[in-house]
Design a protein around this nucleic acid. Sequence first.
DNA 1: GTAGGGTTAATA
DNA 2: TATTAACCCTAC
Length: 535
Amino acid sequence: MDPDICRWILEFLLRSSIPDSIVKKIMKALPLSNINSRLRKTIVLRDMQSEVATTSLTENLLVCLEVIEEINRLDGIAISAAMKEAYCAVAVECTVKYLDACPDKNTCGLFDDAVNRIWRGRVRQMMEAVASGKKIDLFTAELIGWKDVIESARWDREVCERLTNMNTRQNAFNKVRVYLKETWASMGPAFLEQAAILSEDKGWGNSWGDKMGDIRGELADCIPNGGCDNGVSESVLVSDQMNRCKGRLHYSTNMTEKGLVVFDGNALYTAATCMEKTLVAGGNQVFEQLGKRAVSSVGGSQALGGIDLPRRINKEIEKVKLPLEHNHGAPRIRRGVNISDAEEAKSSTVCSKDHNASNIQVDKLRKSLISSSLELRALVKDPLPDALHRSDIVRSELASKGVNHEPSFENQSAVVDVPEQNTCRSMVLYQPIDILKKQYSANCSNVQRPSLMERNSTACTYEWDDSFIDVPGRSPKKRRRKGRWGSEEEDALRAGVKKFGKGNWKSILRFYSEIFTKTGRTEVDLKDKWRNLTR
DNA sequence: GTAGGGTTAATA
DNA sequence: TATTAACCCTAC
């Protein structure tokens, strides 16, 4: 798919309320080259929004804000007061929260570690950078003031108590939400939404809505046993979101609705297909207007990466029209692999109403894919897509930097009631910005955070290749070895059980994510370790 | 998501 | 070789 189309789709999805799990899949599959600063910022903001939505506050937010500051500086955008306040409030909360869990506030290793990471790490590096003449807008007098207070809490019990009694958590949430609201507003709608609004202004019809309803119904009907693996619900969700934008666009072509059906849980394919068909639906008029609107609204092609948009759009039209009209054509990309027309034909029938027939074809195709996969493994040392590669590489490079976090929506209230920590919603890892961090977070602290693009925690291995396909004659899957538990981890686990109670492993994992993500612990690991500790 | 039984690797 | 810690699997 064309990189510009990818960007438009990704920006739109990031701005939507599509679950992070789907965005995660899409980001894994999309070729994320040529990311412009607007998309970078959108990714980071979504990351922050996700974290706040699950009422979790981690040092990931500090990294995000630092990344955005860098983006803004390069783009010549001033740092707002809300952003500075948000950064300071999060830094305070990410430190003070450890006081709450410390049995002995004056000898708490977790609090000390947080002070070292945040105030003696990030903030001090800022101080040094400013002293050397570098402009860092996040470094404020308020931050310096808090640094002194936090440092004094290490030896002054009174300060310590005062900090513990402050609602730094609520304050941080409010400040971050204010900042997010302000920033989303300043960025305006997603490019595709702008285009949709434009098409509505032009009166290009509204028949799409009815048609989309039919298609969604067909999607639901044609999925045997609730779906092709787990893809259908995702496809419908994506379709719903795309419909927000597409509903305003004119629909007039002979779409092959079956082509909309997700194959094997690949939400990207659905998103891409929906978007292609939508964009094609309006024909040249829409594309031309898209181009004009984009170029005129940003004062030239610069903001779109310097592309000749109308020319690019026409190219896309030709590329997409062909397969639509002839029901075959240019190869599409699924899971980062080009698929042939024959496979396309197969997959297009996967979800037909003839479930038995489609299942047979699914089985055939799966066998074919497994066979291909094995062949590829034999031929290629590491078959992971580039995105995963980059993510893994960056993650290892960030082993001494890093972060944590969770998911979200725009347009949340700026000031909200924050639930008690032990009633937090379950954390959903959503970590999309590894690549961006590599570029923008040279001064991160030493906490690692799993990536959005990271492989499933139960599938990733530390000492050997993962092999999820059983192969006769091949040695059985080895066990992961994450290593023995350190005293820091044990302390965090004990403090977590004291704070959240036994059994709330997910909450404990989230609360001490700075510690547990370094070693890649899961909630099951925490449970098992607690069992060992209490035996 | 969690609990608990079972398995495996590391260690004494 | 026995014990223990870490990990896996499955049911709920």
